[in-house]
Simulated scan of single mutants.
Amino acid sequence: MSRPITATINTAALKKNLSIVRNIAPRSHIWAVIKANAYGHGIERVWKSLSNTDGFALLDIHEALLLREQGWQKPILLLEGFFHSDDLNILHQYHLTTIVHSHWQIQALKKAYLPSPLDIYLKINCGMNRLGFQPSEIHKIWHQLKELRSVGKLTLMTHFAEAECTQEVIEYMKKFSQTSKNLNGNISVANSAAILWHPQTHFDWVRPGIILYGASPSKHWKDIEDSGLVPVMTLNSKIIAIQNLVSGSSVGYSHYYRASHMQYIGIVACGYADGYPHHAPTGTPVMVEGIVTQTIGAISMDMIAVDLTRCPQARIGSSVELWGENIKINDVASISGTIGYELMCALSSRVPVKIK
């Protein structure tokens, strides 16, 4: 028998979450963001469940080609653009839309001889200072691109550094509006947080990412608990050993946890090599046989110790939810000093995945 850990992908939840985005932004087209192998869920596993989207947005050109090979014919957006001028022929061949954020990319487009033009997203740096042109350059660049035969439809975009912060959104949108004045093109600025909390940012295309997978774009599940969004990934395992600790005895590496009384504990087949956060402290929530309890001691490569005081009925083989439908990934991430995005993306390839 195989090790009892499993990640379950709920395809009905994916469909529901996409429909919620559609209802929140009914006048906008949707780029479903599936970068980082669909946030750890697996592009091949999830794209058909998201096929009601208007387009997919991702980073890697190989992921884009995979989608085309799988049968996806609608738009695909490359969120970091192209990385080499030779890529432009591939973008044309597979009908890919690309972000342009750097002057060298404009030069590559000038030199390109393509049978038909590419659709372009022109990225404005409104303050995040990762990718994009300064607002003062945009009008000049816009008109440069409009003159190129290799450039087709132009869309303006930017990205919020902290879209859960209303004041920042106001400042970004003021800068964006000033920059894009008199430029006749579509607009895409709303990420997951902006979709949920700032309807004035929806415009022509929205770009949902983490909310498609049923987690909060902030660090807190409570921020979306009334949204109807449903967790897509559930990480389950089982108890593989039981220990009875006497007062003063420890469990795990470095004796990080010592029992202050007689204590019934379980050892779960899951660890940081499976993608569980190594820094999760004692007290991180888990569910055993439907009862919420907590981890104790250090997280090992392959095992986690959990307190069974609240669930004395637990035995070897008892079910454990590490995160998912009941134990929210945001809560595990927050107490571990990280974010839900990282936990999703960190799911190990050694964990078997089941499609529900």
Score class of each variant (00 low, 15 high):
94 Y>Q: 12
94 Y>E: 13
95 H>W: 08
95 H>F: 10
96 L>W: 02
97 T>E: 13
97 T>V: 14
97 T>A: 13
98 T>F: 03
98 T>G: 02
98 T>L: 01
100 V>T: 02
100 V>L: 03
100 V>A: 03
101 H>R: 07
101 H>D: 10
101 H>Y: 12
101 H>S: 11
101 H>T: 06
103 H>F: 13
103 H>W: 11
104 W>G: 05
104 W>I: 09
105 Q>C: 01
106 I>R: 03
106 I>C: 00
107 Q>Y: 05
108 A>E: 05
108 A>G: 02
108 A>F: 03
108 A>C: 03
109 L>C: 01
111 K>P: 05
111 K>G: 04
112 A>S: 10
112 A>P: 04
113 Y>A: 12
113 Y>T: 13
113 Y>Q: 14
114 L>G: 05
114 L>E: 02
115 P>D: 12
115 P>I: 10
117 P>M: 00
117 P>S: 09
118 L>K: 03
118 L>Y: 01
119 D>T: 09
119 D>N: 15
121 Y>N: 09
122 L>F: 08
122 L>D: 05
123 K>W: 02
124 I>S: 00
125 N>C: 08
126 C>G: 01
126 C>Y: 06
126 C>F: 07
126 C>E: 12
128 M>V: 08
128 M>G: 06
129 N>Y: 12
129 N>E: 13
130 R>K: 12
130 R>I: 04
130 R>P: 06
130 R>H: 05
131 L>E: 09
131 L>F: 09
132 G>Q: 05
132 G>R: 06
133 F>N: 02
133 F>I: 03
133 F>G: 01
133 F>A: 04
134 Q>H: 15
134 Q>P: 05
135 P>Y: 08
137 E>R: 14
138 I>G: 07
138 I>C: 10
139 H>P: 01
141 I>W: 08
142 W>G: 00
142 W>D: 05
143 H>R: 13
144 Q>T: 13
145 L>T: 04
145 L>F: 08
147 E>M: 14
147 E>Q: 15
148 L>A: 04
149 R>I: 13
150 S>E: 02
152 G>L: 07
154 L>N: 04
154 L>Y: 04
154 L>M: 11
155 T>L: 13
155 T>E: 10
155 T>M: 14
157 M>H: 00
157 M>L: 12
158 T>L: 09
158 T>N: 06
159 H>P: 06
159 H>I: 09
159 H>N: 09
160 F>H: 00
163 A>E: 07
163 A>G: 07
164 E>C: 13
164 E>H: 13
165 C>S: 14
166 T>P: 13
167 Q>P: 11
168 E>S: 14
169 V>C: 10
171 E>Q: 15
172 Y>P: 03
172 Y>V: 06
174 K>R: 15
174 K>F: 08
174 K>D: 12
175 K>S: 13
175 K>D: 09
176 F>Q: 06
177 S>W: 12
177 S>L: 14
178 Q>P: 01
178 Q>E: 15
179 T>W: 04
180 S>T: 14
181 K>G: 00
182 N>C: 10
184 N>P: 01
185 G>E: 10
186 N>P: 00
188 S>I: 09
188 S>T: 11
188 S>F: 06
189 V>N: 07
189 V>I: 15
190 A>C: 02
190 A>N: 00
190 A>P: 03
191 N>P: 00
193 A>K: 06
193 A>Q: 04
194 A>F: 08
194 A>C: 11
195 I>L: 08
196 L>K: 07
196 L>S: 07
197 W>K: 07
198 H>R: 09
